[in-house]
Design a protein around this nucleic acid. Structure first.
Length: 120
DNA sequence: GCAATGACGCTCT
DNA sequence: CAGAGCGCCATTG
């Protein structure tokens, strides 16, 4: 069989997925990667997001890590901004500063969520 | 055209 | 439970 064609993953593709995250919901990096057609490449999603600039139409704040937490960023305070933006949309954080994915993770059609299991 | 630059996720020790 | 290692790749100057 032919080798699996690795679609070139452009950041633009990732951004377009993130743009579809509904308000009041969050998606994980890994989830976005799967939806973008690159399962297992959550990191690329993180890279893409970092390359993002202010004023982007991309709701970057709706992307959280696999634990529902906000990833550490280079600019302190930005993490807080992300949290505030989410809370403003109705997303709540638990005592561990994490979003209960069971409640707020964006549920896509069938490809997206299949991995709703306890994280470690 | 090359080198540097990053916002993760999972497994194993 | 915590820490460390590994895989992975597009975009920019």
């Amino acid at each position: 069989m032919s080798a699996r064609k690795r679609r070139s993953i452009s950041y633009a593709r990732i951004y377009s997925i993130i743009r579809r995250i509904p308000r009041g919901r969050v998606a994980t990096y890994g989830q976005v990667a799967r939806l973008a057609g690159i399962p297992g490449h959550a990191r690329q999603v993180g890279y893409a997001l970092h390359a993002l600039t202010d004023g982007s139409p991309v709701p970057w704040h709706r992307v959280v890590n696999a634990r529902g937490g906000v990833s550490r960023r280079a600019t302190p305070g930005a993490e807080l901004e992300q949290r505030l933006r989410l809370e403003a949309e109705g997303v709540r954080f638990d005592a561990r500063a994490q979003v209960p994915l069971a409640r707020f993770q964006w549920k896509t059609g069938r490809r997206g969520l299949r991995r709703a299991r306890p994280l470690r």
